[in-house]
């Protein structure tokens, strides 16, 4: 794992190992919030930022606190607390100092704590023994890959907004089918770069 170039990891996290299309993570908000392109873009940015920042914090905590003390099994609790605390903190700081940013991104912040990919990136990073730079690249790539997916989905949904669908297929049903089609397209990227 040590010898992979961070750039490779970054690209792989966006295209071949996309969080949604190959790991099925971050689906909840992907399905419910992907109705308009601007909103999706805002959420995507917020997720990318939080994922990268918490990955950095978690990496430091894991490497310098949990590993020396042999408390690896506590990583679930520690990681999730870090994420929740970080999101809370960011929300307060942004509300206090950047009101305009708060109105555009603030509403998404609470949603992010329960977004699976933030937590998943921290877990994958530990399981795959990434170095610091690799972790940062992986986190940023995963966030961007997720943004790409949700914006694409919002675009597709806007197109079919006025189409008639069978009753039960409306909403989540059709979203899942479209996601499947997109995932098929993303399968085409596999083989360009590959990470495990």
């Amino acid at each position: 794992m040590m010898d992979i170039n961070p750039t490779t990891i970054f690209l792989a996290a966006i295209f071949t190992n996309n969080m949604i299309f190959s790991y099925f993570l971050g689906m909840c908000s992907f399905i419910s919030v992907s109705n308009e392109i601007p909103t999706s873009l805002g959420l995507g940015q917020a997720v990318t930022f939080v994922t990268t920042a918490t990955a950095i914090i978690n990496y430091i905590i894991y490497k310098y606190v949990l590993l020396p003390l042999h408390l690896e099994y506590l990583r679930f609790v520690v990681f999730i607390i870090t994420i929740a605390a970080f999101v809370q903190l960011i929300e307060m700081v942004v509300e206090r100092y950047f009101p305009s940013l708060y109105y555009s991104l603030g509403i998404f912040l609470p949603l992010i704590t329960v977004n699976c990919i933030v937590f998943a990136v921290s877990l994958f990073m530990v399981i795959r023994n990434y170095t610091f730079l690799q972790s940062v690249a992986y986190a940023a790539g995963s966030g961007l890959g997720w943004t790409l997916a949700i914006v694409a989905m919002a675009g597709a949904k806007q197109r079919i907004k006025n189409n008639k669908l069978p009753k039960g297929l409306e909403g989540p049903g059709i979203t899942l089918i479209i996601t499947g089609l997109m995932a098929l397209a993303f399968v085409g990227f596999s083989g360009i770069v590959q990470i495990q």
Partner: peptide
């Protein structure tokens, strides 16, 4: 075996389940 199939199958199950429960 590949990921896309999971989306299609789940989409179909959601469709079936929703039309039944509705």
């Amino acid at each position: 075996v590949m990921p896309p199939s999971a989306f299609f199958i789940l989409g179909t199950i959601v469709w079936w389940g929703r039309s039944k429960t509705e």
